[in-house]
Simulated scan of single mutants.
Amino acid sequence: MTLPQVPFDDRGLAYGDGVFETVLLRQGKPVLWPYHLARLTRGCRRLGIPVPGQQALDAAWQEKPQAPLEVLKLIVTRGSGGRGYALPDAPLPRLLIRRTPFVPAVKRWQEGVTVRQCRLQLGHQPLLAGIKHLNRLENVLARREWHSSEIAEGLLGDTHDQLVEATSMNVFWQQQGHIYTPRLDKCGVAGTLRDALIEKGEVHEATLPMTALPTLERLWVANSVQGVWPVTALVDQANARLKSWSLEAVDDFQLAAHRLLGYVAQ
């Protein structure tokens, strides 16, 4: 299934006025589907966009699978209409769907990754915090900061220099044997894997200054499609190494997360 032509006056195209979900399909079935539906609903309600019907959302993944693993992308925009930023009187949301075959980066599960600290700092906007809205320009600008294939992700702090997320993943760390992830009440995207791990008591929310990153016992980046990548090296904005971590023989946090995603330990 491919994206249809988007009209010139679509508000998602013009203003980022909408939300999206990126869902892992395993044998055609959506993984963590209740969490994706909950975030999509939360985002639509936060923006005042009518939530698409359950039948339309379920139909997005009920076609014959193209591959054992696929990625389903759902985009909901407010549709067309309204003058300038003013909203249409009776919005007709537009639901766009695409699904593509997917192969996870297993090598990154096994060998870990290098991440860098980004220069860009995320601004605070509590009304948008946690939801996966279409205006991702901060993440786009942050991803422009490096071109080396040796760097897998960039870590983003906010304007108070507190750790928030990676450019397209959530961040997790170990301190005194416990696993934490940043609070996302001011900015950032609350990932569905993150939500599931918090609900199951595997992870707790906390704050962490960017300057404290080299003091951590362990560090990971993760999302509901790629799974968990252990961080083995942290570099600064000039690519100077700040910290190295060794891989553990058994990564209990990765195993717990991968069980939720159906990934077999490699």
Rank of each mutant, 00 (worst) to 15 (best):
A60D: 01
W146N: 10
W61Y: 14
L156Q: 03
M169A: 06
G48N: 03
T114G: 00
P93F: 11
A60L: 11
P104T: 00
G154A: 08
Q66G: 14
T159W: 03
T159H: 10
V113W: 07
P34F: 02
V31I: 13
V103P: 00
V71E: 05
P30W: 03
C44H: 10
P34R: 06
W33Y: 06
A59K: 03
A90Q: 15
D158H: 04
Q54T: 14
D158S: 10
R98A: 13
G48D: 08
P65W: 09
Q117E: 12
I97P: 13
P52M: 04
Q121S: 03
I151N: 12
P30N: 12
W33K: 00
L57E: 13
N139T: 00
R83I: 08
A166G: 15
G43L: 01
L72E: 09
E153Q: 07
T77E: 05
P65H: 10
T100M: 15
G84W: 09
K132W: 09
V140K: 13
R116Y: 05
I97Y: 07
H36F: 04
E138R: 00
W33C: 12
I151Q: 07
E145G: 06
G112L: 09
Q125G: 01
L156C: 07
L95R: 10
N170Q: 05
A38H: 13
L156Y: 13
